[in-house]
Amino acid sequence: MNETDRSMLGRVFRLLECFSVARVRMTQSELSRRTGLPLPTVHRLCTQLVTNGALERATDGRYQIGVRLWELGALAPRAHGLRQIAMPYLEDLYEATHENVQLIVRDGLEALYIERLSGRAAVTVVGRAGGRLPLHASSGGLVLLAHGGGELLDAVLEAGLERFTPNTITSEHRLRQVLDDIRRRGFVVCREHLNLGTLAVAAPVQRPSGEVVAAISVVIGADVDPAPLIPALRAAARGISRGLTTEESSTE
């Protein structure tokens, strides 16, 4: 255990990181087992976190993430400011497609989905708003990886290319080819890379400097021709990029 984990802040983060989509609510005993922290320590931390709104205690005694954490997280400039600029374009893209429309940023070696618009008739997808997916296996992740530099690619390759379907990119040679193609064409089409039956198209969002800071994607059925979507997707990405340019100019 390193010094950070021994600190109060380190223990708090270890506890909060136990929660996931698969584990939305947890008891103190479960948190103790997963963190390796003594039950009295978990009890004390949970009490303090509930008092400050970071956790909430359900009627069955289990704990869940509190609204205060969501409120604070929504203030993150990389998510909040970008989301505000992107929403009108994402809404237009959704109205044009009535499919899953997503806004993605990179966090480490993962694609972090900070917004999704989805209709009841849209295909089922793996990702979710607030969820994470591997860079090499998701359309938005591949766009971010294509513009992330050599060190990022080396780190992704070193971590391993996990297979999700027969179409997931699992070889370095193919991955490098796809990334080169993304940089050349300005978009990517991923057919059944994450789950069977879906196809995703993604394009980059850029700052005035040319830095790619996000990606937007549309997920449709695998049997649908993606070609008609690509112009609308790229136009939305350019619109968001122009919005970032305007925002930066207004703050100078």
Score class of each variant (00 low, 15 high):
residue 116 R to H: 11
residue 168 T to Q: 12
residue 195 N to W: 11
residue 137 A to F: 01
residue 148 G to I: 05
residue 193 H to Y: 15
residue 132 R to N: 01
residue 155 A to K: 14
residue 210 G to A: 00
residue 99 E to Y: 03
residue 208 P to S: 06
residue 120 R to P: 12
residue 118 S to L: 06
residue 171 S to W: 00
residue 123 V to W: 06
residue 183 R to L: 04
residue 103 L to Y: 08
residue 149 G to E: 02
residue 209 S to Y: 02
residue 92 D to G: 14
residue 120 R to W: 13
residue 120 R to M: 10
residue 129 A to P: 15
residue 208 P to Y: 05
residue 213 V to C: 05
residue 184 R to K: 11
residue 194 L to A: 08
residue 162 E to F: 01
residue 139 S to E: 11
residue 195 N to G: 14
residue 132 R to H: 03
residue 144 L to D: 02
residue 90 L to R: 09
residue 181 D to Y: 01
residue 157 L to T: 10
residue 191 R to I: 04
residue 132 R to E: 04
residue 128 R to T: 13
residue 182 I to E: 11
residue 199 L to P: 02
residue 198 T to W: 00
residue 134 P to M: 04
residue 177 Q to R: 09
residue 177 Q to S: 12
residue 152 L to T: 07
residue 164 F to G: 05
residue 147 H to L: 06
residue 134 P to D: 04
residue 140 G to F: 01
residue 164 F to V: 07
residue 204 P to L: 03
residue 106 R to Y: 08
residue 93 L to I: 14
residue 126 V to N: 14
residue 217 S to G: 12
residue 131 G to S: 07
residue 176 R to D: 14
residue 155 A to V: 10
residue 181 D to M: 04
residue 149 G to I: 01
residue 178 V to C: 00
residue 134 P to L: 00
residue 115 E to T: 08
residue 147 H to A: 08
residue 148 G to P: 08
residue 164 F to Y: 15
residue 194 L to D: 12
residue 172 E to I: 05
residue 107 D to Y: 11
residue 93 L to T: 09
residue 186 G to L: 07
residue 124 T to G: 10
residue 144 L to V: 00
residue 184 R to D: 13
residue 117 L to K: 13
residue 131 G to V: 01
residue 198 T to H: 02
residue 182 I to T: 09
residue 151 E to N: 02
residue 206 Q to A: 14
residue 195 N to L: 15
residue 144 L to Y: 03
residue 103 L to K: 06
residue 207 R to S: 08
residue 164 F to E: 11
residue 139 S to V: 10
residue 128 R to L: 15
residue 114 I to A: 00
residue 193 H to M: 09
residue 154 D to T: 05
residue 212 V to M: 03
residue 174 R to S: 04
residue 115 E to Y: 13
residue 106 R to L: 11
residue 213 V to A: 02
residue 176 R to F: 07
residue 214 A to S: 03
residue 94 Y to W: 15
residue 207 R to C: 10
residue 167 N to L: 07
residue 143 V to R: 02
residue 118 S to R: 08
residue 175 L to P: 11
residue 118 S to C: 14
residue 109 L to M: 12
residue 197 G to N: 07
residue 93 L to Y: 08
residue 162 E to K: 04
residue 151 E to G: 01
residue 197 G to T: 11
residue 196 L to N: 10
residue 111 A to R: 02
residue 157 L to N: 05
residue 210 G to C: 02
residue 152 L to S: 01
residue 193 H to D: 14
residue 131 G to R: 00
residue 116 R to P: 13
residue 191 R to M: 02
residue 175 L to Q: 03
residue 116 R to N: 13
residue 183 R to V: 01
residue 154 D to R: 06
residue 131 G to L: 00
residue 206 Q to D: 09
residue 96 A to R: 13
residue 115 E to G: 06
residue 157 L to K: 04
residue 167 N to A: 11
residue 97 T to C: 06
residue 123 V to D: 09
residue 99 E to P: 03
residue 213 V to Q: 00
residue 113 Y to W: 13
residue 113 Y to N: 14
residue 125 V to H: 03
residue 167 N to G: 01
residue 144 L to G: 04
residue 164 F to D: 09
residue 190 C to P: 11
residue 92 D to H: 15
residue 95 E to G: 14
residue 170 T to N: 10
residue 200 A to F: 07
residue 101 V to K: 01
residue 109 L to Y: 06
residue 114 I to T: 03
residue 142 L to I: 12
residue 198 T to Y: 00
residue 139 S to C: 10
residue 158 E to V: 08
residue 168 T to N: 13
residue 105 V to I: 15
residue 169 I to P: 07
residue 215 A to P: 06
